[in-house]
Simulated scan of single mutants.
Amino acid sequence: MDKSNKIIVGISIGDLNGIGIEIILKTFEDKRMLDFCTPVLFGANKAISYHKKVLKINSSIHGIQSMEAVVHGKINLMNVWKEEVKFELGKSTPEGGNYAFQSLQAAVKSLQEGTVDLLLTAPINKENIQSEDFTFAGHTEYLESELEGKSLMILMSDTMKIGLITGHIPVSEVAKAITPELIREKVSIMYHSLQQDFNISKPKIAVLGLNPHCGDKGVIGKEDDEIIRPTLKEIQESGQLVYGPYAADGFFGSKTYEQFDGVLAMYHDQGLAPFKALSFGNGVNFTAGLNKVRTSPDHGTGFDIAGKNKANPESFKEALFSSLQIYKNRIEYQKLRKNALKAESVKKN
């Protein structure tokens, strides 16, 4: 396989009955996209052909049986399975989940082996993908189990980057899960990610409170005063620009988020509800903290519009461009770090 200088993007195709394949095909309908990277889809010829026929998309696909056969300048398709699959567009089925996992598993294996440079994931259905082999709340948790590092889900757009202190857990468990250790861990991951992945040398991070009005001095809960505030003060004393806690309603209502490089929300909907209200359709889900780059669009399987040629590929395109930039930023960061260590070593000698 001729590596050339093209970044090879591994793409898992998501739920077969959703809009994943549609947004992938629409993204690469514009052949100029192949100037930026070499895509490798992990799926099957019959699955892609079925969607192409339904959607009347004529993109040429280059089928391969091994990564050595990847051709730059083409949309490559690694055949993961060969058997016939029953399609029920718009429906959540066990088959849709099973083959979504097979695609994801093969793409992650290639990512681990280094035959693809980064991972772009189309949406899965968190219920039908569950099996003996997949017992995770979503992509983020699965990837953390397969790759190196501790993960942080970050939803990002041109105007904000929102990370989550707690991820896919029930609201009833959120308060118990928030500890000084967890806050320190997530702040550390976001801080390093902003430096390494986004070229921000001295990041400024806001942390949201847990309770309404940050507890109103204990009237509506004590966690903000007893756990969050002291932990943030300790982090500030180490020299990091981390501020809070901020009451979430006023923070977003007054656009205070525009003053920060990153925001950490205490739980899923506290961060993602305002993010999607402000950026839905152009947002990107980025898994920070791991040794490999992974992004995805900010939406789900879109069963309600699957097969109707209505899916908007903009978020998927943004996820692709973001992943490429983050990958390049990491390479540059490592070079600068290496040079700094060399310079330090010369000084000492």
Rank of each mutant, 00 (worst) to 15 (best):
S145L: 04
S157Q: 05
S145E: 00
I178E: 09
G149W: 01
I162C: 11
L164P: 00
S145Y: 05
S172N: 14
E146F: 02
T140A: 01
L143S: 06
E141H: 12
T159P: 12
S145T: 07
S145F: 07
S151L: 12
H139W: 10
I169V: 04
T166P: 03
L164H: 03
T166C: 02
I162M: 10
G138A: 00
L147V: 00
L155I: 03
I165N: 10
G163Y: 02
E181I: 12
K161D: 12
I165G: 07
I165T: 09
E148A: 13
S151N: 11
E141A: 10
I183E: 08
E148S: 15
L147Q: 02
K150N: 12
E146D: 04
H168Y: 09
I165W: 04
T166G: 06
I178P: 06
V171Y: 14
L182E: 15
K150R: 13
T179P: 11
I165P: 03
E144K: 02
S172Y: 13
H168R: 08
Y142C: 07
I154A: 07
L182F: 05
T179Y: 00
P170N: 08
V174N: 06
H139K: 11
G138R: 13
L143N: 07
H168F: 08
P180T: 10
P170A: 05
T140K: 05
L152I: 04
V174G: 02
H139N: 05
I169N: 08
P180Q: 06
S157N: 09
L143R: 08
I154R: 08
L182S: 06
I169A: 07
E181Y: 13
M160G: 00
L182K: 15
V174A: 05
K161T: 06
S172T: 14
I154S: 10
I178G: 08
K150I: 13
L164G: 03
L143C: 08
G167M: 09
I162F: 05
E173W: 11
K161L: 07
Y142T: 08
T179E: 04
